[in-house]
C-alpha cells in the first residue's frame, strides 16, 4: 500500500468533523472523493497530506506514520494541489513552478530547470515561463499550480516507491477542455505507476477518470467502490438528495450521470431533503 488511512478522526473546536475513516490507496490507482459540501472531503485530504493531525488513528505513507516524517521527507513522496492560490507578489510562472524545488537543496540548477520546463510542457504552458503569474487567467493559474505539483513530484515512481499526488478540486476554475486535460495528466501519472487522489465536484468527471470513487457523507464513508457498481447502487442520489439517472451511452466505456433538474424542489419529494450548505 502506498497510503494507508487507519481509523482516523479529525476534531476541530471539540467537534468531530471527520471519521472514523479508513482506506488504502495502492500504486497505479486514481481515486476520487465526492460528496456534498461540508462532508469532510477537504478535511480528509488535508489529513492525508499531513497538514492536519488526526486526533485518533494514523496515516501511513509507504508504511511510515506521516506524523513522524519531516516536511522535507514528505515533500519528496507526495505533492498537493490546493483549491486556489493567490500570490500577492509579482512572481513569474517559472519562479512559481520552481518553488516546488525550493527546499530540495540536493538538486543542481540544470536539473531544476529541466524539471520546471517539463512540468510546464505537461500542462501545455511551455511558452509561459516568463509571464507574471498574477496576470494569468484563473484557469491558467490553476494549470501553473498543477505544473508546480508535477515538478515537485518528479517521476511517478522513484526508487521503487510510487509518488502520491493529492488534488483538491483541481478542476474548479477550468473550462471543460482543461478539466479533461488535467485529469488526463492525472491518469498518465497513474498509468506510470503513481497514485492520485482527487476531490471532485463533477460526478461525471469522477466517474469517467477514476478507478475508484469514495463518497463521503457527514464525515464518514458512505460508499467506496469502482465507478460502475457505485453509480448503479444509487448511493449518489441518496447522499446528494437529487434524483440521478445513470446512462450508458453507446460506444462509451463509462456510464454517465444525469441529475434530475426538472423539479426545483417546489414539488415535495418523498422524504428527500436538499442538503443545507455548510
Amino acid at each position: 500500500m502506498v497510503l494507508a488511512v487507519e481509523e482516523i478522526e479529525i476534531v476541530a473546536a471539540g467537534r468531530r468533523i471527520l471519521g472514523p475513516v479508513s482506506l488504502e490507496l495502492g500504486a497505479g490507482s486514481l481515486t476520487t472523493i465526492v460528496g456534498p459540501n461540508g462532508a469532510g472531503k477537504s478535511t480528509l485530504v488535508r489529513a492525508m497530506s499531513g497538514e492536519l493531525r488526526p486526533a485518533r488513528g494514523r496515516v501511513r505513507l509507504h508504511g511510515r506514520d506521516i506524523a513522524g516524517l519531516a516536511p522535507a521527507q514528505l515533500a519528496t513522496r507526495r505533492a498537493v494541489l490546493p483549491q486556489a492560490s493567490t500570490i500577492a507578489f509579482p512572481f513569474t510562472v517559472n519562479e512559481v513552478v520552481a518553488l516546488a524545488l525550493g527546499q530540495r537543496f540536493d538538486l543542481d540548477a540544470a536539473v531544476r530547470q529541466r524539471r520546471v520546463g517539463k512540468a510546464l510542457a505537461a500542462v501545455d504552458l511551455s511558452g509561459f515561463g516568463d509571464r507574471l503569474y498574477q496576470r494569468l487567467s484563473g484557469g491558467e493559474q490553476q494549470r501553473v499550480q498543477l505544473a508546480r505539483v508535477l515538478c515537485q513530484s518528479g517521476e511517478p515512481v522513484e526508487d521503487a516507491e510510487a509518488k502520491l499526488l493529492i488534488l483538491d478540486e483541481p478542476t474548479s476554475s477550468l473550462d471543460i477542455r482543461h478539466q479533461v486535460g488535467v485529469l488526463t495528466i492525472a491518469r498518465r501519472f497513474v498509468e506510470a505507476g503513481g497514485v492520485v487522489v482527487a476531490v471532485l465536484h463533477d460526478l461525471n468527471l469522477a466517474a469517467a477518470f477514476s478507478d475508484r470513487m469514495i463518497v463521503l457523507e457527514a464525515g464518514t464513508i458512505a460508499a467506496d467502490d469502482a465507478p460502475g457498481p457505485l453509480l448503479a447502487s444509487g448511493v449518489l442520489s441518496k447522499v446528494f438528495g437529487i434524483d440521478m439517472t445513470i446512462l450508458h451511452p453507446g460506444g462509451w466505456s463509462r456510464p454517465a450521470i444525469l441529475p434530475d433538474f426538472s423539479d426545483h424542489g417546489d414539488t415535495p419529494r418523498k422524504s428527500r431533503h436538499l442538503p443545507s450548505e455548510a
Binding site: G50, E51, A72, Q73, T76, A79, S85, G102, Q103
Partner: peptide, 21 residues
C-alpha cells in the same frame, strides 16, 4: 530567502513543499 519564497503560496502549500513553516 527560499523559505519566504515558499511561504508566498500560503502556509499549507509551503508545508506541502517541504518547509518547516
Amino acid at each position: 530567502a527560499r523559505g519566504l519564497d515558499a511561504l508566498v503560496l500560503g502556509e499549507a502549500e509551503a508545508f506541502h513543499m517541504g518547509l518547516r513553516v
